[in-house]
Design a protein around this nucleic acid. Sequence first.
DNA 1: GGCCTATTGACACTCAGTGCCAGACAGGCC
DNA 2: GGCCTGTCTGGCACTGAGTGTCAATAGGCC
Lengths: 194, 194
Amino acid sequence: MSNEGLWSRTRQAAIAEVGTVAMDLFLQKGFEETTFDDIAAAAGISRRSLFRYFGTKEDIVLSHLAGDGALIRDALAARPDDEPVWTALLNVLLLIDDGGGDRARLLKISEMMYGVPSLRARSLEKHLRWQSDLLPEVKRRLGTASGDLQAAAVITSAIACLDAAGEIWTREKGAVPLGNLLTDAFDAVRQAAR
Amino acid sequence: MSNEGLWSRTRQAAIAEVGTVAMDLFLQKGFEETTFDDIAAAAGISRRSLFRYFGTKEDIVLSHLAGDGALIRDALAARPDDEPVWTALLNVLLLIDDGGGDRARLLKISEMMYGVPSLRARSLEKHLRWQSDLLPEVKRRLGTASGDLQAAAVITSAIACLDAAGEIWTREKGAVPLGNLLTDAFDAVRQAAR
DNA sequence: GGCCTATTGACACTCAGTGCCAGACAGGCC
DNA sequence: GGCCTGTCTGGCACTGAGTGTCAATAGGCC
């Protein structure tokens, strides 16, 4: 129903393009200053259809950012079994270092992200959803003595490090590679938690 | 302008009562099913004034929950200097274990909190704001080798543990004291991060 | 071509949130 | 007491997000 056929593939492409148009508007006029009517007009579709593509403005931004729960889960499963959990999580998060696109645009998006409260909140929520994707594998690695709480604590702490690193990266205008910051953050927790 | 005078004190009390009325409605009808008009009518004030008291519905709930940034900051400053940071943070967060009120109500509020996405997001945001309150003191304790990134990583990880513990506490219907869960969560990160 | 189904756009609606303005109301001053 | 002043309140109108409904349509399938 959804993934096969020329139909849905072109539709996905169309939706993606609408998203790009919207992002351009956000970066030009600001997130909160851009209305759904603006986006619909710029994209040449009706307001109603826009709502069908993206339920909220926040969804538009979120869908344009890297990080897929399933991908991360698979990446963690692929790490060697004897690697300590904390190191494994670091290595997995290092993979989403980058959006692949141009730096300046990514930085502007990040600034918007950290500047608009509702966006920041949605980003946190999205990261939180990774928790459920990673839980089984982390529990397995932690051993039988650990339950959901222990695994959840470790995962959310790791994600918290990612958020902290991302915030500093943004504040420093991308001067230091996110990977370095992330490693430093993980090390800091390693040092402090003992 | 705000803290002195019989006037503003009675006003604060009135606002608090409106908040309680609203919380009762939320717990009865559900958060999203309760409109501002409902609350204003039940509280006997105009919709416009209600908006002046609380900018959003989420604010009503948040203002009814424990946890003040300044309080936590002071509590951390009061911990002995030779206490490891991670332990000090645990001890500080243990202080906000409880809302003081009746358990069943607190549990229902927590369930609403974790069940309604917009509320969950606002709660995360609120906790995030504690980060800036704690940053100077944690930086001081981490020593000169550490900067904002290191301190932020440690703090957000600690807060992440609090959220994880809170979630499990809610899922388990408050069967295990939050303090125990929080301690376990901190220990889990202690074990994993090495 | 003709049928079937999903998608679209238009309309109407609810509700959150904000700006504006006029009236009420408490406190200070004469 | 009467007056002035600043604040609080309620009412009105407005924008914008988000949803339900329904007729028109466009593409895929036979």
